[in-house]
């Protein structure tokens, strides 16, 4: 078992806070260890989103997860975005904030997609520099998620796990190890998902994401619209056996089923942590 270096506690098992589940949550206050929000849905809004968040944050821990930090972009850092993010960090008293190893646009443009970083020394140094500035500004650790990717750059010099390990060493950022994304990228690029999990820097892993995806035969798209598949559960079990208990969250973002269905998936994650007891006699 490897303890994460900040000593962040295992918060248990949570799920993404989605608008279709608001009324269920406010009516039943279900037993969920925490909710994770997509920060862009709440930043800059003074209306219903922030009102709902305040109510839910009174009863549950809320984790912050972003999609627009664009940490790898070669455009200047967007401090207007960071200011709003810092306000949100204060509002829910977040101990860390997560986003993706990616870029979303350059030349003043935003594609609103999580575009893949070239895995080169130049890119590594660029992201390291920006991460330090961002973490200094936010005053909480940034936890970077391994993205699902659909292409590899011709100039890539590093594996994704070596890149992330070097980044964490250089910047002391955390890792959000998305187990489904490991599986998706390994399928799309032909590397070993088990090797990825074995070699990722365990002390930097703060938490895990789990989700479903769409397998189109020759490639997989990370659609978050279905149950977690068995292969991903097996990888998650491997993570637990290597790293120990880490905060774990299930994402379901499209074709979102009733609350109970997503919650059942969250509870299923807990069963992966049970120790295997062999029958005797």
């Amino acid at each position: 078992m490897i303890v994460n270096k900040w000593g962040f506690p295992d918060l248990g098992f949570g799920m993404g806070l989605r608008t279709v589940h608001y009324s269920h949550i406010l009516e039943h206050w279900p037993q969920v260890d925490f909710f994770e929000i997509i920060v862009e849905n709440y930043m800059g809004s003074g209306g219903r989103p922030i009102y709902m968040l305040e109510q839910i944050a009174e009863r549950y821990p809320v984790l912050l997860h972003g999609v627009s930090l664009s940490v790898g972009s070669t455009d200047p850092i967007d401090f207007e975005y960071l200011k709003l993010l810092k306000n949100l960090i204060g509002l829910v008293k977040a101990r860390w904030v997560s986003d993706h190893l990616c870029w979303t646009g350059i030349l003043g443009r935003n594609t609103h997609d999580l575009l893949p970083m070239p895995l080169t020394q130049e890119s590594l140094e660029h992201v390291s520099r920006r991460l330090k500035v961002i973490q200094d500004y936010l005053e909480v650790p940034l936890v970077l998620e391994n993205p699902s990717t659909y292409l590899e750059w011709a100039q890539d010099q590093l594996t994704e796990w070596d890149y992330l390990n070097a980044l964490t060493q250089e910047t002391d950022c955390g890792l959000l190890l998305d187990v489904n994304n490991v599986y998706v990228s390994s399928y799309n690029h032909g590397f070993s998902a088990q090797e990825y999990i074995q070699k990722i820097s365990g002390e930097h892993v703060v938490y895990h994401h789990l989700s479903g995806h769409t397998n189109n035969g020759t490639y997989i798209v990370d659609t978050h619209d279905d149950h977690v598949i068995d292969e991903v559960w097996a990888l998650y079990t491997q993570c637990y056996q290597r790293l120990g208990a880490r905060t774990t969250m299930v994402e379901w973002d499209a074709e979102i089923p009733p609350f109970e269905v997503v919650h059942a998936e969250v509870l299923k994650a807990a069963t992966c942590r049970k120790p295997v007891v062999s029958k005797v006699g």
Partner: peptide, 14 residues
């Protein structure tokens, strides 16, 4: 409808 950004790719085929 309430806008909601989700955390990753939308479902699609090529």
């Amino acid at each position: 409808a309430e806008r909601e950004v989700v955390s990753n790719a939308k479902g699609m085929v090529l």
